[in-house]
Amino acid sequence: MGRIAFFLSEAIRALRRSAAPSVAAIVTIVVTTLLLGVLVPVLRASESKATEVREQIGLQVFLYRDATKAEIEALDKELAAIPHVAAVEYCSPACAKRELADELRGDLEGSIQELNSNPLPPTFKLELDDADNLEAVRAALTPPNSAGKPTPISAAIDPPIGQDRENATKIREVTGAVKIVLLVIAALLLIASLLLVANTIRLSIYARRREVEVMRLVGATNWFIRWPFMIEGVIVGVAGAGIAVGILLLGKVTIVDPLADDFALIDNLSTMGFAPLVAMLVAAAVLVSALGSGITLRRFLRV
């Protein structure tokens, strides 16, 4: 108990006596924590948006308008049996017209009603378990015939399949790329902030290496020397993260929340909650600065 109090007072003494390096360390932590605090939700939001887009990717199989009921029923079963197909939904011409009317709600709605016949074909909508399996499913729908030419599995199908959904492939590629880019950015940022914090801590410890040397010569054990430095790191981490969280909170209240009220879009972004974000940031800041101090000290503790 007395020892903990001693370590604590040692840490506070060190912080007070070397104010400039301490402030530098705190500012470094504030900046990196702020960066992370802004980027993590943004990355999370854009990633979930990308996932959402991917989830919407499906295949549409158009049928000839003269497809018979028996053909349609047989095809329904065949489609459901294809691997990676999560759900099959049949949409009759009437259903297609309703959907089109839904999409065009507003100015063009009337023009749909003016059509005297329904030109839309019946459709099967296929939901996939993963957007990456798009090509596999498409291939299963049109196996090559004896001449090696892709042929639809049913005569009722109006090829080509999913032609108007060709952009699905592009979406898939783009979202994949976005995911990788975001990951790389996050990793780089993390590495940069770790190095920055480590370097700041190194400097402040390097300035005190003589002190560490004296402590060793007096017979202090390594942990006896290390504890105050680690506690100092924790204090610096808590202070830095605290300031950063304060700024983030201010930003959330003054900028993000009013926007969320006005635009459903921002509110809809499924991002992480503020509380878990804060917990994560504080934990990371404290861990990094405490471990950074402890590990940097190793160099000067070698006997």
Partner: peptide, 10 residues
């Protein structure tokens, strides 16, 4: 042992 060195120095 190296971690006994501080006790020697005391």
């Amino acid at each position: 042992d190296h971690n006994r060195t501080p006790y020697l120095r005391r």
